[in-house]
Structures are given as C-alpha cells and as structure tokens.
C-alpha cells in the first residue's frame, strides 16, 4: 500500500477514511493489502467489524498481529482463490489493483469472496499525469504515483474510464464512486470531468443481478 496523502485528524489517511465510511458497522471485512493495519484497526474500533487482513510484507503482517489484528501473509494474485464464496460482506483492495499481475481475475475474486468490494486506485487519467507525459515526455510522478518507473510496483495502471469498461465486461455494478483530487479532497464521483480531475478513484462494487 502506498503512503499517499497525509493522515487526517482521525488518524488515518483520507482515502482510507472514505473507504471506512462505505462499510456497514458490525460487518465482516477482508482488507487485501492491509499494510500496517491502519484501516483494519480503525474499522475494528469505530465500526466493530470482524476484520481480516492479507498483506504481502512479512514485517507488515507481524506488526498487524502484534497489535491484535487477524492478518496473514499473502497477496491478491496468489491467495484469494483459497477463500470460499461470500465469506465476507466487504473485500477491500486499496491502492493495490494496479500492482497485481491479473487485475481482471483479482476483481472477479473480490466479488466472489465478498458480497461487495471496495476498490481504490490512482487514476492515470488525472490531468497532472497526462501533462507530465505530454510536456515532460517522461513517466509521470504524482502524490499517488510517487516512485520512478524502475522502482514502482505498479504494472497495470488504468484510468477511471478503463476501470468502468472492465467493470462492465465483468458484470460488476457500481454502487458508489468517490473522486479524490490532488489536495486529498473527496467528492461524489460520476461527474464528466472525474477522469481528468481525480487523482484517485474509489468504488463500491457488487455483482450485477
């Protein structure tokens, strides 16, 4: 998980707070790529969720378990297949989709395991990204895309429009969407200029039908 824009007064990053707001109290949640467990800890404290985490770095896992969170080492590509269908109310994938090997399969798995999925990712259609490439002629670097091309784990970057196309293909319904701009301000998504103005996008998804 990237560090992203700063933490807010409630102690967690603004994008995580937006995610937390989508989660019903006392639900069952799997956080894929839970990092240091900040979101899980928040959800447990303020929403009384039954939370689990999956985290690729062993150091992150150990830190989570040491603070009483239920977390295992693993990653979205390899380990989602073990979970049974509808095991969770929500499966969260925060700022990680673009770093998976098979995003299409991962999205399918998220909505198999969870009744709903909450997915956030950096929007490659963001105007600064476009401008960086257009004028600078080099791979863009922004607040959410903060590593040079040779260091970044991101291998499947997409724009909001790309994501909407894939969701349609997979029969995924979008229940809510939030656009977060470069200053970390979030607003209701779905407006025409989101793909240009949003640095990050956040979706609450469920299977169609």
């Amino acid at each position: 998980m990237n560090e992203g824009p700063g933490a807010n007064q409630r102690g967690i990053r603004i994008d995580l707070l937006s995610i937390a707001d989508m989660v019903e109290p006392r639900s069952r949640v799997l956080d894929v790529g839970c990092g240091d467990g900040a979101l899980l800890d928040y959800l447990a404290r303020f929403k009384q969720v039954d939370g689990r985490g999956l985290e690729i770095s062993q150091a992150g896992v150990n830190a989570c378990v040491a603070q009483g969170l239920s977390v295992i080492q693993g990653d979205a590509d390899a380990d989602l297949k073990d979970y049974p269908a509808n095991a969770f109310d929500y499966v969260i994938l925060s700022q990680t989709l673009q770093a998976t090997r098979r995003p299409r399969q991962v999205l399918t798995d998220l909505l198999r395991i969870g009744r709903r999925a909450i997915v956030s990712f950096p929007n490659f259609g963001y105007w600064r990204v476009r401008l960086d490439l257009l004028l600078g002629g080099r791979m863009p670097m922004t607040g959410t895309l903060d590593q040079p091309w040779y260091e970044t784990p991101n291998i499947h970057l997409c724009t909001i429009e790309d994501f909407l196309d894939l969701s349609r293909d997979l029969g995924i319904a979008i229940e809510r969407r939030i656009a977060i701009d470069g200053k970390g301000r979030s607003r209701q998504g779905g407006r025409p200029l989101d793909n240009l103005l949003a640095e990050q996008a956040l979706f609450l998804l469920r299977k169609n039908g």
Binding site: N62, V65, S70, V71, I72, Q73, D82, P84
Partner: peptide
Amino acid sequence: NAAAANVSFVEI
C-alpha cells in the same frame, strides 16, 4: 482460509 476462519499467520 477456506473454512473462512479467523486466522493470523506469521513467519518469524
């Protein structure tokens, strides 16, 4: 996991 159990796993 397949049993949807509450599990933590650490390798030290």
